[in-house]
Amino acid sequence: MSDEYETTSTAENDALRATYQFGVQEPIPPHLDDAVLRKARADVRKDRGFSGFSAWRRPAAFIATVGLSLAIVIEVGDLAIFEQDPLSRPDPQQDFATKAAESPARIRQIGEIANQRALGENIDIKQLIIPTGGDGVCNDAQISTPESWLACILRLRADGLSEEASAEMGKLLLAYPGFTAAE
């Protein structure tokens, strides 16, 4: 079956269309044309404005990313150098001596010994190393001999002062290296 609407050029339909076109003559109001064309221009301008903004925004974002990355890399590099420097690491063996040296009382004592040396007095070297007096937990009488010092240490342990006992033991071993047998 033929379809008279399949194409737009059958004679009947062409005649109807021609009549329709002949009769219809409504002109489009000019203000509509102006409004539509103005909108078309404005939208394109808006797009261009946006793309202009994008044009500098992308490089700016790239530069900012690179800058931040560099800053992070430099920071991390500094940390790595610090970690790799063996001199900057605290030495556990020197910790005790450092702490002892930092003690104000010890500094005072060293000053006194230096004065006595200057006066020609004979100073026991142990006095430079072993903290004495009120600075340590064990008093001078207790640290006068290794046995009494050890007795003081054992008493500290018995009293539950294990940290102080360990510290005193460290001092004892430093002052009397041969006392390990007694231990």
Binding site: A11, D14, A15, L16, R17, A18, T19, Q21, F22, G23
Partner: peptide, 15 residues
């Protein structure tokens, strides 16, 4: 737009 046709309505003599 289209070739002049007379549909029989008497309106397209000056198409």
């Amino acid at each position: 737009r289209n070739p002049p046709l007379d549909p029989g309505y008497g309106l397209l003599s000056r198409a």
